[in-house]
């Protein structure tokens, strides 16, 4: 088996609150990405997906855990020692409107990482930026435009061009199409697929939209309240989900067809990350709950398809 590009073990992020309580935003997760694969991370709001993204890129400091990137534990590296990693791993955010500086041209935004990392200057810089723009399907005339002159999809392409400037190995995409219309989302999804094969990129693709993840990802991990509860090949997880939470998520997806209103598969709301229930964290909402579930916390178990559930 190929060595993983990224291997995460026991990753956790806790935010202390007054009165000795704490928000366990990410509560101990294990994850591995092999080079060239695309892993989807799905779950509902507040489950910790974005926190995972920021931890993996060391944009925030983990409370505990190991993040091994190409063999090196980057969880504890100093800022200076992180420099090569900052080139190899890039992130693309949900909101392209907020990600670009309104007073800088497309050229200035895309060139920035190349200038900061002192990789190119002068005519070479200009040539590289023009090539990047071409790779994301934008005409060269866009170089001198400002963000307000671009549509949402064009802005997201500029953000992608900037992320590709340093020829990264890993790209973390945090809801990259959630702010876009479906017709534009489809363009971006298609083009992200194409980029991955052309440049051998590895993706961690975060989304609340299961159908989108199904289009782009080989494997998928499902998060609930700071934990991964199921993980496996996308077609298996979506066609035959084993965790009762994944089953409810899949059953809640509305297909683009008439007359398919699902029975609401889950009652109640997601608990707060400051009050994670004992035992299995899904137990209070779980239709399969047994006595043991409220007592013992199930671990993520299995080989290619892993599940954290006493009943699965």
């Amino acid at each position: 088996m190929t060595a993983p590009l990224l291997e995460v073990t026991g990753l956790a992020k806790t935010y202390p609150l007054k009165g000795g309580r704490a928000v366990r935003a990410v509560d101990g997760i294990d994850l591995a990405l092999t080079p060239g694969e695309s892993l989807g991370l799905v779950g509902e709001s507040g489950c910790g997906k974005s926190t995972v993204a920021r931890l993996l890129l060391r944009l925030i400091e983990p409370t505990s855990g190991v993040i091994r990137f190409a063999g090196t534990n980057i969880a504890t590296l100093s800022d200076a020692a992180l420099r090569p990693f900052r080139r190899d791993a890039q992130i693309i955010f949900q909101n392209p409107h907020a990600a670009l500086n309104p007073r800088r041209t497309v050229f200035a935004s895309v060139a920035e990482p190349l200038v900061v990392q002192r990789i190119a200057s002068g005519t070479e810089l200009q040539g590289r930026v023009a090539r990047l723009l071409q790779q994301v399907g934008l005409p060269e005339t866009f170089l001198w435009r400002y963000p307000h002159e671009l549509s949402g999809g064009q802005k997201q392409r500029v953000c992608i061009a900037r992320a590709l400037a340093l020829e990264p190995k890993l790209v973390v995409l945090d809801e990259p199409t959630s702010a876009l219309d479906v017709s534009v989302q489809a363009q971006i999804l298609d083009f992200l697929q194409d980029l991955r094969t052309r440049f051998g990129l590895t993706y961690l693709f975060i989304s609340h939209n299961l159908a989108v993840v199904r289009q782009v990802c080989d494997r998928v991990a499902v998060m609930y309240l700071g934990r991964i509860v199921e993980e496996g090949p996308a077609e298996q997880v979506f066609a035959a989900p084993r965790h009762p939470y994944t089953r409810a998520l899949v059953a809640s997806v509305l297909p683009p067809r008439p007359g398919a209103l699902p029975d609401a598969p889950l009652a109640g709301d997601v608990p707060n990350a400051a009050e994670i229930p004992p035992g299995c964290r899904f137990a209070p909402r779980c239709p399969l709950r047994m006595e043991r579930c409220t007592r013992d916390d199930p671990a993520l178990e299995g080989n290619a398809h892993r599940v954290a559930c006493w009943a699965a």
Binding site: A186, Q187, D190, A234, P256
Partner: peptide, 23 residues
Amino acid sequence: GLLAAVPDLARPDHRVAGIPGHI
């Protein structure tokens, strides 16, 4: 165009296609 752009979990073989241009 709109229907062709919507991903469908139950039909993973349906590759989404965008509508060129923008609103």
